[in-house]
């Protein structure tokens, strides 16, 4: 069996979610793991994928791949799958994977499971578990086709670095500039923090904070923990916080190791976005807040009293 993993990169570095996809492919223990990268990136950056389990990375550095175009990318990835004889193609379930996995699945006539949270069970059939009903259940999907496409939920398979270096080979996808139809005019990115979908630690706050002027302590707690900040829907709707921080059913779904919710009551729409977090801490002055029912640890208390003490406790912990 041969496994192909799509390697997404940004500013010369392979994205963390792609490292996790390589780790997933290697953990399948079902054959060689080959990466496919598109656009200009240094060979050295791709060779590091060897430390995550890739034996080889093929790359088409044509400049027309420097911006993301799902149609052109899908053609190139499908061509790489044909050329490497891949039985399984793996993506990260992120903004690129959500555009590409379905396209490549159609091109290869391969069944797709998106947002996988576990390795496939290959005992008799090829079955993969994913979260369904917005975190309220799991569904086991059996793929009926010989070829398979999987997208891996971020933060489900830690990108553990091992030893080794991958061979990097040039690849001619045969997909020319005429296949590109999207012009990317500009990209704006927060550069100072880990993007929320990739964050391992998240500090989130809601209307209990009473106003945007009170977010200083939330940001300070996040900085001390090395966490990314998030918020509830009303807070982003009212413009207290930017839209890209909104976690929940209509916002971003996160699955960090630790989600700290401060002054968020825990409406079902918010829980839909956080239910796959490994550990949830809720801080709320209302002991009846529904979020406590979904939490692992809770503090009943006024955020304005508790958070400053928590920041001090983190500082003491780090100093120890």
């Amino acid at each position: 069996m041969s496994i192909l993993v799509f390697i997404d990169h940004n500013e010369g570095k392979v994205k963390k979610a792609s490292l996790e996809a390589v780790v997933y492919g290697a953990a399948m223990n079902a054959g060689d793991v080959v990466g496919i990268a598109l656009g200009e990136i240094a060979d050295d950056a791709l060779a590091t994928l060897g430390a995550y389990g890739a034996s080889k990375v093929i790359v088409d550095k044509a400049a027309h791949f420097n911006h993301f175009d799902s149609r052109a990318y899908a053609k190139a990835i499908a061509a790489a799958a044909e050329q490497t004889g891949a039985d399984v193609v793996i993506f990260a379930h992120d903004s690129s994977g959500k555009s590409l996995a379905g396209r490549v699945s159609v091109r290869l006539k391969a069944g797709l499971v998106s947002g996988a949270t576990q390795l496939p069970n290959t005992d008799g059939s090829f079955t993969i578990r994913k979260s369904a009903f917005s975190g309220k259940a799991f569904a086991d999907y059996t793929i009926n086709t010989d070829k398979k496409v999987i997208s891996v939920n971020p933060n489900s398979f830690p990108a553990k670095e091992g030893e080794g270096s991958a061979a990097v080979e040039a690849f001619d996808s045969g997909v020319g500039a005429d296949a590109v139809s999207i012009t990317v005019d500009s990209v704006s990115r927060m550069t100072d923090t880990v993007p929320l979908p990739e964050a391992e630690l998240v500090v989130s706050a809601g209307r209990g904070l009473k106003g945007p002027e009170n977010w200083g302590m939330i940001e300070e707690l996040a900085i001390e923990l090395g966490a990314t900040t998030a918020c509830s829907r009303p807070v982003s709707d009212d413009g207290w916080r930017p839209h890209h921080e909104h976690v929940g059913q209509t916002g971003i779904t996160v699955s960090p190791n630790l989600y700290i919710a401060i002054g968020i009551s825990g409406a079902i729409q918010h829980l839909a976005g956080v239910s796959s977090s490994k550990v949830i801490v809720v801080i709320n002055n209302d002991p009846e807040a529904p979020f406590f029912k979904a939490a692992d640890y809770g503090i009943v208390g006024d955020a304005f009293q508790v958070v400053p003490k928590l920041i001090d406790a983190v500082k003491t912990f780090k100093a120890s």
Binding site: G135, T142, K293
Partner: peptide, 18 residues
């Protein structure tokens, strides 16, 4: 291309610690 063969409800979160 795919068939759902089984559903499962997530395990209850263990009791919250205050």
């Amino acid at each position: 291309l795919t068939t759902i063969t089984n559903y499962e409800l997530p395990p209850e979160r263990s009791d919250i610690k205050y």
